[in-house]
């Protein structure tokens, strides 16, 4: 079996959002919607730490759809608009989506975005931007989410976020193939997934931000 997935090394993430912006550009994701976001694990506001200076802590965690092996979003869809491909990618079939929104709360990872309005694309780029093979801009009243860039994967390319990352945080490939880099990193004893208890069996693993956790501070 093939199971496409990712391992993100949070010890190398600088919180720059290049992954998220590359995704948005590649897939013509409308204003206010993000298929990928970069979470600050620290204080309440973006880019802030928790703690008291200098004993402060923060790191970043990019978040996209985890393309779960048992996707909780899939069975709740009344129109079978959510499908799982043979390679493990969980896709939304736009033409089948009726915008009922049931999938959104079903996702434990907050990965599904609703087009409340017709997507607003940047001035001069209203016809869509990014890859010509990517899905055209979505209509109002349907949901959308990270597709692992199926249009790229089908050409043998990595998702846009992977190649855009300037610090090589993200490894992508077949988790079931023991020869891949992604399965080697997933096998690290400190590799973890978010919300194991959900039973969704996500296909996105993380390596912890261990340097920051262990660092010496003088101030």
């Amino acid at each position: 079996m093939t199971r496409l997935g990712m391992v993100l090394d949070l010890d190398r993430c600088i919180g720059c959002w290049a992954c998220a912006v590359a995704c948005k550009m590649e897939n013509s994701v409308g204003e206010g919607l993000w298929w990928q976001r970069v979470q600050t694990i620290g204080g309440p506001a973006i880019d802030t730490s928790s703690g008291v200076f200098p004993q402060v802590h923060k790191h970043y965690r990019p978040r996209n759809c985890f393309h779960c092996a048992e996707p909780p979003c899939l069975p709740v869809c009344p129109t079978e608009a959510i499908v799982k491909r043979a390679d493990g990618i969980v896709e939304i079939v736009q033409d089948l989506c009726i915008g009922c929104g049931k999938c959104q709360p079903a996702c434990p990872y907050d990965a599904i975005e609703m087009n409340e309005v017709a997507p607003v694309l940047p001035h001069g780029l209203e016809g869509g931007h990014g890859a010509s093979e990517a899905p055209p801009p979505r209509r109002a009243g349907v949901v959308e989410k990270c597709s692992f860039c199926t249009h790229r994967v089908d050409q043998g390319l990595e998702p846009a976020c992977v190649s855009a990352c300037p610090t090589q945080v993200i490894t992508f490939g077949d988790l079931d193939d023991p020869t891949t880099q992604v399965s080697a990193r997933k096998a690290r004893p400190d590799a973890f997934r978010m919300g194991e208890e959900t039973g969704a069996d996500p296909s996105v693993w993380f390596l912890p931000a261990s340097t920051g956790a262990k660092q010496r501070r003088s101030g």
């Binding site: 200076f53 340097t211 920051g212 101030g219």
Partner: peptide, 17 residues
Amino acid sequence: DPRYSATAMHANWWLAP
């Protein structure tokens, strides 16, 4: 660096004069 920057966050040792 006087502040805990996104680079300081990745350091083995951060000194904040």
